[in-house]
Structures are given as structure tokens and as C-alpha cells.
């Protein structure tokens, strides 16, 4: 399995810490952020691949955070996390470019699987862009 970087954004401290710990044990590099604002600060470093993002947070909400992430770092894949399953937030997140959504509480394996899928997609997009870049370079008259 490829190692990649995951950021878990949730105001619920217990959930966040436990999930970070468990995912790190499964050979992912995983960190937590307790708010949308903190998350945006963290992703600006540029090494995060996948974000797991709670929809409901005080301050900057999940959907708003998602919009900002997609705007600043469009390649990062975001998996939304909903506690109170609402159709609205599920669909809204998808429309704004979330990779998928998961419902709390969830088990570790499906979560891991979803994060891996999201990373595979991100990796793919990246390859595509690189390919296009190479092509452009080669087409340039030299």
C-alpha cells in the first residue's frame, strides 16, 4: 500500500484523536485539525493528499471548508463526514467536488478503503497533469 497523507478535520476531539491514532497504525500518515480554519492553514503546506472533513462544525462549516479547499488546492480529494445524515449535505458536498461521503459512526475498514480510493483518484489526476505538461514541453519548438 502506498503511504499518503491524510488530514482529519473534526471539532469532536475524541473522534479526531482516536481516528488519527488508528489510521497511523494502519500505515497512513495522518494528522488532525479541529476547525475549518486550522485545516486551511495546514493544507497550505501542500503535502496533504486526502482530507476527511466533518460537515458539521462550529465556525467555518464543512461545506464552506470544502469550497475553500477545492478552490486553493483542487487536487486534494475530500471525503465528507456526516453525523446527522442529511440528504442536503451529502449531495451538496458531492456537487462541490467532494470525492464521497461517509456516515458517522463508521468502522475503520470502510474508512480506510474510501481514503485509499480517494488517494488513487488524486494520484491519477496528478499523473494526467504531468503527462499533459510533458506533452506541452515536447511540442514546444526547440
Amino acid at each position: 500500500m502506498t503511504l499518503f497523507n491524510v488530514l482529519i478535520v473534526d471539532d469532536e476531539q475524541e473522534f479526531r484523536e482516536v481516528t488519527v491514532k488508528r489510521l497511523n497504525k494502519r500505515d497512513l500518515h495522518c494528522e488532525g485539525a479541529e476547525s475549518g480554519e486550522k485545516a486551511l492553514e495546514r493544507i497550505s503546506k501542500g503535502d496533504i493528499d486526502v482530507v476527511l472533513l466533518d460537515v458539521k462544525m462550529p465556525g467555518m462549516g464543512g461545506i464552506e471548508t470544502l469550497r475553500e479547499i477545492k478552490c486553493r488546492m483542487p487536487l486534494i480529494e475530500v471525503v465528507m463526514l456526516t453525523g446527522h445524515a442529511s440528504v442536503e449535505s451529502g449531495i451538496d458536498g458531492m456537487k462541490m467536488g467532494a470525492f464521497d461521503y461517509l456516515m458517522k459512526p463508521m468502522e475503520l475498514d470502510p474508512l480506510l478503503e474510501k481514503l485509499q480510493e480517494a488517494y488513487a483518484k488524486k494520484k491519477n489526476q496528478q499523473d494526467k497533469i504531468e503527462m499533459a505538461q510533458i506533452k506541452r514541453d515536447m511540442a514546444r519548438p526547440s
Partner: peptide
Amino acid sequence: RSRSTAVMVNVYK
């Protein structure tokens, strides 16, 4: 609610 959401999100995908 959760099953409906699952159907809708997957159909959207």
C-alpha cells in the same frame, strides 16, 4: 434518511 442519502449520492456519482 441514511439509505436515501446513499441512493442519491451514488446516483449523482
